[in-house]
Amino acid sequence: MKPRVIHLTVNGEQREVSVSPNDLLLNVIREQEHLTGTKYGCGIGECGGCTVHIDGQPMLSCLVLAVAVDGRAIVTIEGLARNRQLDPVQEAFLDHSAVQCGFCTPGMIMMSRALLNENPRPTEHEVREFLRGCLCRCTGYVSIVRAVLAAAERGAGGEERS
């Protein structure tokens, strides 16, 4: 099982990393790229804490082999803010106290961002449907849904950089 070199775009920057076939994208993001915003919850696809965007699509980095994303563009929670300016979704989470312990927050925000990219004005039902794979132990979800709707209202839809 020889390590091999792969090329990734991580939050807009070209990266070259050496990975083994059994390295998960999540481990590479956290341990090699030192981007620890993306969380390791369950490891089996059930909590949404590890959600990142791969070529613009929300995926679970705990179930993606790093070797399989050679050449692709990854955006993590650290990549949403620009020029020290938070993404409107991040702002809305702060304004609506949609963060308690914060463990689910990166996944929630990456999913919310993905939703608004494809559907800039979702209904409450559409928000709940889209976020159904993100588990939150603290908030009871109400403030999270409110934050996403508020971000949409402020016109937060539209494409992110990749």
Binding site: N22, C62, L65
Partner: peptide, 14 residues
């Protein structure tokens, strides 16, 4: 089991 890593070693081809 520790689901945070893949313990098994394998080759990967694409």
């Amino acid at each position: 089991t520790n689901t945070h890593i893949l313990v098994a070693e394998f080759d990967y081809v694409e």
